[in-house]
Simulated assay, not measured.
Amino acid sequence: MTGQDYALIAGLVVILLLGIVALVAGVRKSRRAQLPPEQRSPFPGGAGAETGERDQPPLTDPAGGAGAGAGAGTGAGVSAPTLERPEAAGTRFQRLKARLSRSGALGNRLLAILSRGDLREEDWEEIEETLLMADLGLGPTTELMDHLRTQAKVLGTSDPAAIQGVLRAELLRLVDPSMDRALKIEHVVGDDGEKHPASILVVGVNGAGKTTTVGKIARVLVAEGHDVVLGAADTFRAAAVQQLSTWGERVGVPVVKSDKEGADPASVAFEAVRQGAADGADVVLVDTAGRLQNKAHLMDELGKIKRVMSRKAPVREVLLVLDATTGQNGMRQAQVFSEAVDVTGIVLTKLDGSAKGGIVVAVQRELGVPVKFVGLGEGADDLAPFDAEGFVDAILAG
């Protein structure tokens, strides 16, 4: 074949390909013309595909207006996510108790000393030092040591098992199993005479894990069969709002939030309570921005949030989230928050962080309010209602 023959064949191939492209384009144009106007996007994935948003469900229910719940609606043709089933609250502490036992530095040291028998003065000093290092606090430590020494004189120190029994009884007395640790989630009647869900405000310093804790408490309540609404009142961090929305989506819990970053947190909290009442929810959990306890204006803001929420119905609980690894530094935090918003319960996170179990006694003694939840891990269900007897047994089982 000559060069002209090759050129002729190449030209025919190009003409054929152009014809095929034109035919396909004509078919697509004809199909788009049959679609409703809002769906006639020139992009393959529909409107927004050019920005990488194809197949993404809307963040809020299109019909929900302000405060629509996260995960309340999904885009047409997009299947709803499979909801997770949270672990039952009754089994959580047993699992966390085993984890606490494995990390039992406090129990290991105490039992090692007591097992020596015939305790000398230096042994008693070592016991006292161990308790202080475990963040038990000076007052509770002195009290425990006095009782322990008195009983040791009666029983004799040559029987380690007897002294260990006394230690368990004294620790249990300090942790105080008689404190009411139940979360107050009964419906209340507001000033308007209507029945409202129990509202719970969650507060704490930066980095304590408040948003995660709110999500985990929601899972506990869902596992118990309660209808929950979450309020994203940490309006200064878009990441916190998105994080709380994700927690809600995983278990089908609506999240009330503002589309405006830096919006008034009190208004978001109020809207959450209003939405909870409208939905017939059992509990409204409101997350707040982390704040340093030495910033007076930020602490005043918490008081405002609580007052505004109370316009619909009384706030049943104010839960203070404390990082257990902060030890005695957390005591000042607890004092200031309690003065600002009248804390009713403590949530201790990261309790498996070495020998800091004494913080349970210290914070309860300082505030006069109970530890209601403890967290011992980063898993979604690694938060459990606190059990005093199980806690003491766990730290002594090491």
Rank of each mutant, 00 (worst) to 15 (best):
P86Q: 09
G215W: 09
V251Y: 14
L244N: 12
A10P: 08
V251R: 10
P265I: 09
E249W: 02
A63Q: 13
D180A: 13
A208W: 04
F43Q: 14
I346R: 04
Q328S: 02
R28E: 06
R250N: 06
V336Q: 00
L396W: 12
V205E: 02
V166Y: 06
L138W: 01
V268K: 01
D5A: 14
T211N: 09
E224G: 02
A218H: 08
G104E: 04
A355C: 02
R316E: 08
Q335T: 12
I359H: 10
R120T: 15
A169N: 10
Q275S: 13
R92N: 00
L131T: 01
T325Y: 00
T211L: 02
V228C: 07
S41Q: 06
G104Q: 07
V273W: 01
L131N: 03
R92P: 09
S245W: 02
K304H: 15
N108D: 06
Q151C: 01
A278M: 09
G398C: 00
T91N: 14
V284I: 04
M309S: 08
P58A: 11
T74V: 15
G193S: 06
R365H: 15
K304L: 14
K304C: 13
L35Y: 05
K372V: 06
V228N: 05
E84V: 08
L110Y: 06
V214W: 08
A240L: 03
V27Q: 05
E249I: 05
E122G: 02
D176Y: 07
G368D: 08
D123S: 11
A313Q: 08
A66K: 10
R31L: 13
K216Q: 07
R95H: 11
G390W: 12
A198Y: 06
A266V: 05
R109V: 01
V256W: 13
A233L: 07
L302S: 09
K257Q: 14
T326R: 04
V321F: 11
D176K: 08
L148R: 03
W247C: 10
D61T: 02
R365A: 12
T212Y: 13
S338E: 01
L8M: 06
Q164W: 05
L174V: 03
G353Q: 13
